[in-house]
Write a protein that binds this DNA or RNA. Structure first.
Lengths: 224, 224
DNA sequence: ACCTGAACACCGTTCAAGT
DNA sequence: ACCTGAACACCGTTCAAGT
């Protein structure tokens, strides 16, 4: 991580690190991807760049600005994998799954983005892909907006479940444990039993997206 | 907030505050509800109870434990408003909207719960209500579990959008601003225009839930 | 058993000062 | 223009000590 200089030959006080705002943002992004959102502190980031904390403040405004910049940078780099499928519905669901896949692939940045409320900044290029598919399916205007938002919210909901922090809350207070401890005559034993098993999030997401997309396309004027 | 003692008549050093674990948790819950998740620091909580920070540690383990306990406490108190509607589908959607309503009503605690990954602890009693309605609609076992999870994730997705932090990310990086600045020949002007307007989250949630519930009930064996 | 005081190892941020 | 050093006002947590 300690960039260019391996041990820098200049005496003791190495002035002029030759830093750039982009260098700072790149280092921040790399740090988060490697060690998670919790590792991004101003001191740690400075250490990574072999400078003092205050140097960071000279190049970028503060922590919030570093975070936004880092998210924006990853957003630009997000691989726009081609949308697959023949029927419009399939292609829309696939475009939505692209959002899921890349969010999972960059889970640490995604967690950070949700923490500061900048998830849409991260996902924006992939939202564009979804919009294109919605239009290809014959939707226009507010119908596209509402469909997009519904899809985005669904993916977001599944993401927060998939990226939930593990440590802070003890086992006994997790959903499955709560159901395991829950006695209820009004609920059948087989249902109670099923609720103690972990669901397949990815399969469930696909099913849910299909339901949402089908409902949305049912109101579409033309289905080519 | 400074509980019992109005100015306590005992000399200067007021020992024996007569604190209880429940008192600590109650104060923490009240603090979060009143001033938000950010206000819950050990020092602030101690000040609220007129004791030293270390006293908190004697009664409960640490911050994480305070947070879990506070969420659990509110969970117990959650008003189980009666589910409305005639048809099973209506009732399921209404039960899900109950989750939304109470999460919004206690927004500060909800934000905190999502931060530590304890949202399901908070919503558990309301999840039970949804399960009852799903069974009343004829679902059993894994079908109930998957339907519940899908519903819960949708609500969660809409909640993170509704409770998004406002300050940390500047206007220009919010969804609507991004669309406003986005030039794209492949997307029709009317769609682009629509995307710059704020959607009605509550109406959209209802529509989305209906789509999910309808799809789930389509596979149900009996629909009484 | 219940509570205090001092301390430790962290945060983000600011500001005067150096070259 | 670019970077350092010292400092401020916060965190959560621990530990010896008091009554």
């Amino acid at each position: 991580m300690a960039q260019t200089s391996t041990h820098d030959p200049s005496p003791a006080t190495a002035r002029r690190a030759g830093l750039d705002r982009d260098d700072v943002v790149d280092a921040a992004l790399a740090l988060v991807e490697a060690e998670g959102a919790g590792a991004l502190t101003m001191r740690r980031l400075a250490a990574e760049l072999d400078v003092t904390t205050t140097t960071i403040y000279w190049h970028v405004g503060g922590r919030d600005e570093v975070v936004t910049a880092l998210i924006g940078r990853l957003s630009e780099r997000l691989a726009e994998r081609e949308v697959r499928g023949r029927r419009p519905a399939e292609r829309i669901v696939d475009a939505a799954r692209l959002m899921w896949d890349s969010s999972i692939e960059h889970r640490h940045v995604t967690v950070l983005a949700y923490q500061v409320g900048a998830a849409s900044l991260l996902e924006f290029p992939l939202q564009v892909a979804v919009v294109r598919e919605l239009e290809a399916a014959g939707l226009r205007g507010p119908a596209v907006r509402d469909a997009l938002r519904a899809i985005v919210m669904c993916v977001a909901g599944f993401l927060v479940a998939a990226l939930r922090p593990e440590d802070s809350v003890p086992e006994a207070y997790r959903t499955r444990s709560l159901w395991a401890a829950h006695a209820d005559d009004a609920i059948s034993p087989e249902t109670l039993a099923a609720l103690t098993h972990r669901p397949d999030l990815e399969a469930l997401l696909t099913t849910t997206l299909r339901a949402v997309v089908d409902a949305v396309l049912a109101d579409a004027p033309e289905v080519p």
